[in-house]
C-alpha cells in the first residue's frame, strides 16, 4: 500500500466528522408521527428511483475513478 499514513489520517478525520454529527443532537430535530404526510410521498424517499440509481452508479463506476458513497452500488465488472 502506498500513502498508508495519509489514508489512515484522512479516514480518522472523516470518521470524527460523522461522529460529531451523530453527537451534535439529532434529537432536537424531527417531527411527530402525524406530521409526516409530505415525507411519506414516494418521491421523498432518499432513493426514490432505485433502478435509475443503479444504472447511474454503473455508468460512473466505469467512467470515473470514484464509486460508492450512497450505497455499495456499482462494480461487478472489470471495467475499472
Amino acid at each position: 500500500m502506498i500513502h498508508g499514513d495519509y489514508s489512515r489520517h484522512t479516514g480518522k478525520i472523516l470518521l470524527a466528522g460523522l461522529l460529531s454529527i451523530l453527537l451534535s443532537g439529532c434529537s432536537s430535530l424531527g417531527v411527530k408521527p402525524w406530521e409526516r404526510g409530505t415525507l411519506a410521498r414516494p418521491e421523498m424517499a432518499l432513493d426514490s428511483q432505485p433502478v435509475a440509481s443503479a444504472m447511474d452508479d454503473h455508468i460512473y463506476f466505469s467512467k470515473e475513478a470514484s464509486s460508492g458513497g450512497r450505497s455499495f452500488g456499482g462494480g461487478g465488472c472489470g471495467c475499472n
Binding site: 472523516l14 460523522l18 430535530l29 424531527g30
Partner: peptide, 21 residues
C-alpha cells in the same frame, strides 16, 4: 466495503443522510 450512516428527519418537509464509506 463498510458503510456507516445516519438519516435524520429535519422537519415536516426535509430530511438528510450522511454516510461514511
Amino acid at each position: 466495503d463498510v458503510i456507516l450512516g445516519v438519516t435524520q428527519i429535519i422537519n415536516r418537509h426535509s430530511l438528510f443522510q450522511v454516510n461514511y464509506s
